[in-house]
Simulated assay, not measured.
Amino acid sequence: MSHSEKKSFELQELAKLTNTKLEGDPRHRIVGVADLSHASSDEASFLGHPRYEKKVKDSRAGVIIIRPDAPRITAHNFLLTDDPYGTFQKVVELVYADQVETTGFEGIHPTAVIHPTAKVGEDVAIGPHVVIDKGARIGKGTEIRSGAMIGLEAVIGEDCMIHSHVVIKERCTLGDRVLIQPGTIIGVCGYGFKQDQQGRHQKLHHYGIVEIHDDVEIGPNAMIARARFHKTVIGEGTKIDGLVEIGHNVQIGKHCIIVGQSVVAGSTKLGDYIMIGSNVAIDGHLDIASGAMIRAFSGVTKSIKGPGAYGGFPTQGLAQNNRMDVLLRNIGKHVERIKELEKRVLELESGK
């Protein structure tokens, strides 16, 4: 993207717009943003952690956003704030304010197939080859991108963004301001089978729904299974990364974070404000307490009863898990030490 497509700001203007204190040239002009290593003299950057202070010295950034107590290693322009990362995001949004358009299609595309009983609200955008089934309802201001499928009697709230090739199956419901990235499927039949006397697996059909509350975001190619009879729930403000699988009847609370390639098996209940790292597997029919934080690559086989940090397989308190990791890394030394001690015991017993 060329600089001519972005807005530009003098530093004195940026300081006012971001409510920060400027140290440096108030007339210096900024037209872009970048990290410390790649920023040029007309781009803004930020120092988000003390470990990157050495990069400030070599950075060519036109202004660096820092905390007031951060060392001034070189003679840069600085914007001072208690929240460098949040302030940098404000600058990003200011610079790219005119770049919000991501499609050339407006209104309802003529190739969209909309059942005559479906209800579409005001200012809804429906892209090419979208299918909206019987009795579905689309709230005002929602945008549905090309190739998406909205199932029978599904309900989508206001100001939602449904990206390309998303499938929202029958009777599932979405609240307001929900964002779903490409390729995700909401309401697939849960993975349930009954084994007969001959060992063959008979499918158990699922008749429940998925209920997604306001301000939820779901990444690309994720899968949320419908409940067998009642509902799978994703609570308000929860953010689910790509390639995550949520099993049938799972209940997820408010403002949780679930990072990519994690799996929550059926009928497990997650409280509020839980953080789950990548590649975490959580077994079914468990309860995970509000405020729990689970380290990446952990396996949860028992309920977690209190807030705090957990990790490992099977999952335990993170401090204990870290101690176990240290012991395992040194297990070779311990084995050799045990062998030496056994040898000495044998020598003593034999009188040598």
Rank of each mutant, 00 (worst) to 15 (best):
residue 278 S to M: 10
residue 217 E to W: 01
residue 70 A to T: 13
residue 187 G to I: 10
residue 30 I to S: 03
residue 136 A to S: 09
residue 161 M to C: 02
residue 265 A to F: 02
residue 155 V to A: 14
residue 157 G to M: 09
residue 19 N to S: 15
residue 98 D to R: 15
residue 74 T to R: 12
residue 82 D to I: 01
residue 314 P to Y: 09
residue 189 C to R: 10
residue 219 G to R: 10
residue 157 G to T: 10
residue 6 K to C: 12
residue 17 L to P: 11
residue 206 H to N: 15
residue 216 V to K: 00
residue 139 G to Q: 04
residue 302 K to D: 12
residue 106 E to T: 15
residue 62 G to W: 00
residue 319 A to D: 08
residue 48 G to L: 07
residue 177 R to A: 00
residue 186 I to L: 14
residue 11 L to A: 09
residue 322 N to Q: 11
residue 17 L to M: 10
residue 198 Q to V: 01
residue 6 K to N: 14
residue 210 V to I: 00
residue 199 G to P: 02
residue 159 D to L: 04
residue 185 I to Y: 02
residue 196 D to H: 08
residue 135 G to E: 13
residue 65 I to Y: 12
residue 13 E to A: 13
residue 53 E to D: 04
residue 294 I to R: 11
residue 331 I to V: 15
residue 95 V to S: 03
residue 253 G to S: 09
residue 235 G to C: 00
residue 141 G to Q: 06
residue 241 D to I: 06
residue 240 I to R: 00
residue 84 P to V: 02
residue 104 G to M: 06
residue 330 N to L: 14
residue 191 Y to D: 07
residue 16 K to F: 00
residue 88 F to P: 01
residue 319 A to I: 10
residue 242 G to N: 15
residue 108 I to F: 10
residue 283 D to E: 09
residue 342 E to Q: 15
residue 351 G to T: 03
residue 268 T to I: 11
residue 256 C to E: 00
residue 283 D to K: 15
residue 308 G to K: 05
residue 103 T to P: 07
residue 257 I to M: 15
residue 101 E to M: 14
residue 196 D to G: 06
residue 43 E to I: 05
residue 312 G to Q: 03
residue 144 I to A: 08
residue 92 V to W: 02
residue 342 E to M: 02
residue 50 P to T: 05
residue 248 H to A: 03
residue 207 Y to S: 13
residue 349 E to Q: 15
residue 104 G to A: 12
residue 189 C to V: 15
residue 290 S to W: 00
residue 300 V to L: 06
residue 38 H to Y: 05
residue 350 S to I: 00
residue 35 D to E: 14
residue 99 Q to D: 12
residue 293 M to W: 01
residue 340 E to L: 14
residue 85 Y to P: 04
residue 30 I to E: 05
residue 1 M to A: 13
residue 111 T to C: 07
